[in-house]
Design a protein around this nucleic acid. Structure first.
Length: 350
DNA sequence: CATTCGTGGCT
DNA sequence: TAGCCAAGAAT
């Protein structure tokens, strides 16, 4: 290992690197895998409590593979990007069936697993197996874009290819796990997006961006994606016992596989919806419309209008539909819920 | 190649 | 405070 860059970053990490992250201890390929999936587009501080709870409940690949999907999504509730949970679950079953329950340790095999792309595969190889593996996440992209003054929107393929080549050129084939952690720590704690600490940076003496006094300009920002505006009409039905009717979303799309109040896309009237759900429309009920509010996602602005129907009696539900469930927060069944659903249920509780 | 996925923390 | 964007992958 002769790369000056890697030497400096490794030495820096020996003093200033993070050592208290839960996936750095009891390090196994499975725990590293789970952590890397949770860490996709999600900051470490947010991931920590989810990782602890997830690996405590599902400590092995086999336990994850055998768990109901609802349990996995329940452990993911609030973390976002729920497709990651579905793909992780599917990948665990694939590992059990095709790899004898052992997390594979080659780049090709890892990328074949759902939810694992090039960077995550590199992270699992290096951090999980201490084998050579190249990472190009947001941290590494920022460090490299600054160090080499890489121009152009980072999301463009030409720029990405350039960054991958640079990442590969700097990645040593020894101390693989240490370097993987070191380069990410540098980006996360020193070469930060805003107000980077160049004075304590181990590679600042050869940083092209710093040399040109243009650190803040790298990486060049992507053109902002346009925000979509949508309305979300929800029907929240509460029965006499205080249970709320939830419906499972399709596996694809927003909140896939999660349980939400009834979505009323077509703006149908309440009696019509109740009939569709198989609920007796003759019984007494009280209705209320909650004040509309804005729910923002990364690129969608939902104006949420919630109509609440309180049933006075026991509701007869069409038992042939497995996409409906009466949810009792005291009973707390294992279901994946979005933050939006949690907020709405909280409003109805009082 | 551009868009679609959640949520929270930051400035 | 209203955006910006994090340990990205799938389509």
């Amino acid at each position: 290992m002769t790369d000056w860059f890697a030497q400096r970053v490794l030495s820096w990490a020996e003093r200033y690197g993070r050592t208290d992250l839960p996936w750095q201890h009891e390090r196994t390929p499975y725990r590293v895998w789970v952590a890397e999936i949770m860490l996709q587009q999600t900051q470490a501080r947010t991931v920590i409590p989810y990782f602890e709870r997830f690996t405590s409940r599902l400590p092995t690949v086999t336990s994850l593979a055998e768990a109901p999907l609802d349990d996995v999504l329940s452990l993911w509730t609030g973390l976002g990007y729920y497709r990651r949970a579905r793909l992780l679950h599917k990948a665990a079953q694939k590992v059990v069936h095709e790899h004898n329950g052992q997390v594979p340790n080659t780049l090709d095999e890892l990328i074949e697993l759902p939810g694992i792309g090039r960077s995550t595969a590199g992270a699992i190889l290096s951090s999980g197996f201490d084998q050579p593996g190249v990472i190009l996440d947001g941290n590494v992209k920022r460090v490299l874009a600054r160090f080499h003054a890489v121009d152009g929107e980072v999301r463009r393929a030409a720029v990405l290819n350039q960054l991958w080549a640079l990442a590969e050129s700097h990645t040593p084939n020894v101390r693989n796990a240490a370097y993987a952690q070191a380069i990410m720590d540098l980006g996360a704690t020193c070469c930060t997006k805003s107000t980077p600490n160049c004075s304590q940076c181990p590679i600042s003496s050869r940083c092209e961006a710093l040399d040109a006094d243009k650190v803040a300009q790298y990486p060049n920002p992507n053109r902002p994606t346009s925000v979509r505006h949508e309305t979300l009409r929800l029907l929240l039905i509460v029965d006499a016992q205080g249970r709320s009717l939830l419906q499972r979303q399709s596996q694809d799309g927003l909140w896939g596989g999660l349980w939400l109040p009834i979505r009323n896309e077509s703006n149908a009237c309440i009696p019509e919806l109740l009939i569709q759900l198989g609920i007796d429309t003759e019984q007494n009920r009280r209705e209320e419309t909650l004040a509309p509010f804005i729910h923002t996602l990364s690129h969608i602005r939902f104006e949420v209008t919630t109509h609440v129907v309180y049933l006075a009696e026991e509701a007869s539900l069409d038992s042939s539909r497995d996409d409906l469930v009466w949810f009792d927060s005291d009973d707390s069944p294992s279901l994946g819920l979005s933050k939006l659903t949690l907020a709405l249920l909280d409003k109805v509780q009082k």
